[in-house]
């Protein structure tokens, strides 16, 4: 089995068939994670380098565990932990240096949109985008879809709401692309300051300001982290006001479907976009998302390398 794409830079790289293959493979890899000895020899002898030019704890740990469970040799380079990526050396210089060490997969997280795509031009390795600026975070969207499929038992015909800081969110962009690709109806919500221009046209989604308006029809509600720093940039006046008009509490869930599921890519900002009773309540599948993250990343790495040797 193999994917139709060489890199995973954007959800746009994947066909519907690729997505289904990843989900199927992830389910079987998830089973490995439930075993006492969580390791298979699948990627023995393969080298994966995690290039986290932007700080990350959770995504990086998830990738590292996925690599270890597949028996790959993995190394990490970080923002400051490496002599590389210093001032004066360009991103491409750094990638060319890494390339000289013949890696099989580069996992790249960068604060600048497009950085993984640029890196892919300078390496023969497969590049996985682990989050680039405000652009995309495709493995997050895949793990979200895996979770939805797991909980709902289906994908097509569902209605998913995404609420919060859509403008700055790479998770929202990847999810809008992936969910639409797989036949899911998507409604995005947030204060007008945090909805990107043209979002309806570009992603084929519906928008509203207050997610409560759309709540009764939703099967899944995905909440996004709203960073408090956005207040300083005048996107909204206060966390209190955000929570009051745009956040979700148990109170606002009145009138929703009985089986509405709450998701959040984390880290959760309790009391802003979501109250603690919702985040930790019975509808929440937030921790299930984290578990699926490892399985999805194992699947993507396995499928990118395919059965044969990498070119």
């Amino acid at each position: 089995m193999k994917l139709s794409t060489r890199h995973l830079l954007s959800i746009n790289d994947l066909s519907r068939k690729d997505v289904l293959t990843i989900l199927q493979t992830a389910v079987s890899f998830k089973e490995i994670s439930e075993r006492p000895i969580k390791k298979v020899p699948t990627l023995r002898g393969r080298t994966v380098i995690n290039c986290f030019f932007e700080d990350s704890t959770r995504t990086r740990l998830s990738f590292e565990l996925a690599e270890k469970r597949l028996s790959a040799d993995s190394s990490n380079i970080g923002k400051s932990g490496s002599a590389m990526a210093k001032k004066g050396e360009t991103l491409l210089d750094t990638i060319r240096n890494i390339e000289a060490m013949r890696p099989d997969i580069l996992v790249i997280r960068h604060s600048a949109a497009g950085a993984p795509a640029q890196a892919a031009t300078a390496t023969r390795a497969h590049v996985i985008n682990a989050g680039d600026g405000m652009h995309e975070h495709p493995t997050q969207a895949l793990l979200d879809l895996m979770t939805i499929n797991e909980v709902k038992g289906r994908i097509k015909g569902l209605k998913v709401g995404i609420a919060g800081d859509i403008l700055h969110s790479r998770v929202a962009r990847s999810n809008m692309l992936l969910l639409k690709k797989m036949g899911i109806d998507v409604i995005v919500a947030g204060p007008p300051t945090l909805l990107p221009v043209g979002v309806e046209e570009v992603f084929g989604v519906r928008t509203c300001y207050d997610i409560r308006e759309a709540l009764p029809e939703l099967d899944v509600l995905m909440l996004l982290r709203v960073q408090r720093e956005r207040m300083g940039e005048q996107f909204f006046p206060s966390a209190r006001e955000y929570a009051r008009y745009f956040g979700v509490s148990n109170e606002s869930l009145k009138g929703c479907k009985d089986d509405l599921v709450i998701m959040h890519p984390g880290p959760v900002n309790r009391g802003v976009e979501i109250t603690a009773d919702v985040a930790d309540g019975p509808r929440s599948v937030i921790l299930g998302q984290v578990t699926n993250g490892v399985a999805v990343r194992m699947a993507v790495m396995y499928l990118l390398l395919g059965d044969g040797p990498s070119e």
Binding site: A113, G114, D132, G133, M134, H135, E136, R170, R173, P196, V197, G198, V199, E201, V202, F203
Partner: peptide, 13 residues
């Protein structure tokens, strides 16, 4: 430019 392409690419407009 702030418009559909910046929204798609996740670049500031």
């Amino acid at each position: 430019h702030e418009g559909n392409v910046s929204t798609e690419l996740g670049l500031g407009g």
